[in-house]
């Protein structure tokens, strides 16, 4: 049952190319998925601002439109306000933990350098080893990069907090029991019977096409994330044949083969949305002109719009918080590796320092 431990060993050039390829792939996936998500957020924003689909369902003028009731249920199911409040409360701890690891690492370098300098002052040119300051430049540069990243993360945390404070009340309202939610929505006398009018049917058809489009995006996202391809064979063959490895060209052509079609489908779904939303805007204008507009109806519509966008913000805030939590946890792992690098080099320098010190004191 012999397993060759060296089976997966590849030349350094191939190993590094695999790393860079996986980074390119991750960036491609993030761009495609990010584009679709942003476009969907835009669509939800436009619909919420037009009070759609609620306006089409809001016949009696005093019961909760079906889409709003569904949105309320989904927020409660996703954990409601408590779940995001808890994640928001955790952010500062995650940030502090990362900062501490980084600060400790850099402090190790500083302390060792201070001692190195003191001994250099004491022994002058007899202290003939490379100054620690020079040796630690790359690590300190890396540390500086981590500091910038943490500063950007702090800004991202603030964006999430601002979004939460802007929509928190309305999200809380969505989480209230149905009767309280209903009581909080101003009622208006029943909408004129617009049911039969053609514009309502056009709007309904457009909205269902938009729903279809959004569902298709979920499928595309799933397919994109399911794509796997082992580049090692390609890299090994290229290295063997030409003796040199053009990672960029090999990776880009492979990534195009794997994701080119998806890129087309993503661009297509963006265009589809633009067309559909254009038609929605036109039909909505006609719909609003038919609908009676009085203060009660307008007040009711304003609250329904806020409730719809509160749901969308809840979904966005939750996604931001998941992303933030993952970011901090991933960064912790990377910072621990950085800390190890710092402690390894400091340990080596200390050992070397003590030997040099012993030697100098003896001679």
């Amino acid at each position: 049952k012999f397993t060759d431990l060296f089976e997966k060993m590849v030349p350094m050039a191939v190993q590094q190319s695999m790393s860079i390829y996986s980074q390119r792939k991750a960036e491609t996936v993030n761009r495609l998925v990010g584009t679709m998500r942003e476009t969907t957020n835009l669509c939800n924003g436009v619909l919420a601002s037009l009070n759609l689909p609620a306006a089409l369902e809001d016949l009696s003028g005093d019961s909760i439109p079906q889409s709003i009731a569904e949105k309320a249920r989904s927020v409660v199911q996703l954990g409601g306000l408590q779940s995001i409040e808890q994640l928001i409360k955790d952010l500062p701890e995650l940030l502090t933990r990362n900062r501490e690891i980084l600060d400790e690492s850099l402090k190790m370098l500083d302390n060792e350098e201070t001692t190195d300098n003191e001994l250099r002052t004491k022994f002058n040119q007899r202290w003939n080893r490379t100054p620690s300051g020079d040796l630690y430049k790359p690590l300190r540069a890396e540390g500086g990069n981590f500091r910038d990243i943490l500063d950007k993360a702090v800004q991202a945390d603030q964006v999430v907090r601002d979004r939460y404070s802007a929509h928190g009340d309305m999200i809380a309202l969505l989480c209230r029991p149905e009767d309280e939610l209903n009581a909080a929505i101003p009622s208006a006398n029943p909408t004129k019977t617009l049911q039969g009018s053609e514009v309502v049917n056009v709007l309904r058809s457009l909205l269902s096409q938009l729903d279809e489009m959004k569902k298709e995006r979920e499928t595309i996202e799933g397919e994109i994330k399911a794509v796997t391809f082992d580049m090692s064979a390609t890299f090994l063959m290229a290295l063997a044949q030409d003796g040199v490895l053009n990672e960029e060209q090999l990776s880009l052509s492979q990534l195009d083969q794997l994701y080119g079609a998806y890129n087309q489908r993503v661009q297509a779904t963006v265009r589809t949305q633009e067309e559909l939303l254009g038609q929605v805007q036109t039909s909505h204008q006609e719909f609003s002109s038919l609908k009676q507009s009085n203060t009660e109806a307008n007040q009711r519509e304003e609250v329904l719009k806020k409730l719809a966008s509160a749901h969308d913000s809840y979904v966005e805030i939750s996604s931001n918080l998941r992303e933030g939590t993952k970011f901090y946890n991933d960064l912790t792992e990377i910072l621990l590796k950085f800390q190890n690098k710092c402690s390894d080099i400091v340990f080596a320098r200390k050992t070397e320092r003590e030997e040099l010190l012993k030697y100098l004191q003896q001679s």
């Binding site: 980074q23 993030n30 990243i149 950007k152 991202a156 964006v159 970011f327 991933d330 960064l331 990377i334």
Partner: peptide
Amino acid sequence: SLYPSLEDLKVDKVIR
């Protein structure tokens, strides 16, 4: 995405 990407930090660099 809202938070910085860590992708390029995951590329393990060899210390010379």
